[in-house]
Design a protein around this nucleic acid. Structure first.
Lengths: 229, 229
DNA sequence: AGCGGGCTTGACCGGCCGGTCGGTGAAAAT
DNA sequence: ATTTTCACCGACCGGCCGGTCAAGCCCGCT
């Protein structure tokens, strides 16, 4: 038996992989996410796993394949993951569920998520880049559909749909830069707060909509100590 | 006279630098922004400038110094740039001015902005990382102060101030990933739209606040064709 | 006991990396 | 007229990069 890594952060959709492969993907994901693709050498990955560099090439054909398994494997089913968590109901609540589900995906597959969204946002591999954009489009179109639904239902005003989608995705996509898993709210709670702010607006005056389903407990703390954006 | 680069994208705060140095900084910024720090070699920069690699070392002591001039030089005065463009008036309008000014900075110093916010978000140089965090804190604290002002003035409801700041900065910080300078709205217009959405909210029902000062002209286009987030 | 085969290794490769060095030619200073 | 200065270059360096390879180790099977 091999002694495995301490950080078994999830890499999605790797059902039939061996422990060793899962360990490599996990460590590689963490390294890609923190140091970038070019900043992570095969030696780095090998050392992090406590194995020889050659063994990496026994399980994977090259560095790119490791990255592909981490990144593509992670974004592969984001759309399905989120879609399955958006229940029937008022369109606005579907948007909220969309945001919370995306946040849950971020929490569960954090390193893979960061690795896939930061390294290679200009991917030199044309085919892979095209494939990623296709998936991203499908994901974003799904959100735009929900927004359009909410407009048609009269729940939200006639805003610019693509721009609204970008605002919502911005709030989720930027989260990895300031989120600290050891502090305060979970990603799902944060997504819920963001939905409340965007849906109901910051402006005071009218009774400002329903409060978030679950509000975070410790929102009172010194501004100095909270993580930055 | 030397034949200079075609893309003279701004690198701020380089007043007394020679043409050649400005050219190097400009090309390096563009490369760092598109291919990352590790993905950009000194040879790449030299070739992009049409000069020899040695000449880079004549003008700069090493690769890190080039990056520092690009990144630190750009974030150096973001706070001052924005502060000077936030006029007296209702706090909510100061927040809007904050967002529009940040967007203007992004438009003017696009590559430098991207290079400084993407490459090295985990900077191995501890001192420089600390300095950047300090500047980032000052910038973010300024925004939090404006939000608190707006709450105290009763213009916006009692939201979580740090979280609200993160939402606003997310919308601005993520913009470089989908903004296309050849299409539709300027960054300033986008910031204005985002402010409207966040301030007034998406929810319909009440007459939804004042429209943005300048609304973009061509918001009607096929969803397929608009850039993604 | 013998054996096949997957897991694992260390030594090694060509190439690109950031960085150095001695030198050149032309303008500026003396 | 000579020296100094300075932008600029080609050749080169040690080291790390991604990747290869032949060989050992260890296991269950016969």
């Amino acid at each position: 038996m091999v002694e495995l890594s301490t950080t078994k952060d999830g890499i999605p959709n790797q059902a039939e992989a061996s422990d060793r492969v899962l360990q490599i993907l996990s460590e590689a994901g963490r390294l890609f996410a923190t140091k970038g693709y070019d900043g992570t050498s095969m030696r780095d990955i090998a050392v992090a796993c406590g194995i020889s560099k050659s063994l990496l090439y026994h399980h994977f054909s090259n560095k790119d394949e490791i990255y592909a398994r981490v990144a593509v494997g992670s974004t592969l089913e984001l759309y399905l993951f989120v879609r399955d968590r958006v229940p029937d109901g008022p369109p606005s609540q579907k948007i909220r569920a969309f945001m919370v589900a995306t946040a849950e995906y971020f929490r569960r597959y954090r390193w893979a998520w960061i690795a896939s969204t930061t390294a290679f946002w200009n991917d030199p591999d044309r085919h892979r880049q095209k494939e990623r954009l296709t998936r991203r489009d499908r994901f974003e179109n799904f959100l735009r559909g929900l927004i359009q639904e909410a407009i048609d239902a009269g729940e939200i005003r006639k805003v610019d749909v693509p721009m609204t989608g970008r605002l919502i995705l911005s709030s989720l996509n930027w989260m990895h830069r300031w989120y600290n898993p050891n502090k305060s709210a979970t990603p799902e709670q944060i997504a819920d707060i963001f939905f409340d702010m965007v849906f109901n607006g910051l402006r005071s005056g009218d009774a400002a909509g329903s409060p978030p389903a679950e509000t975070l407990k410790s929102s009172r703390r010194k501004a100095r100590q909270t993580p930055r954006s």
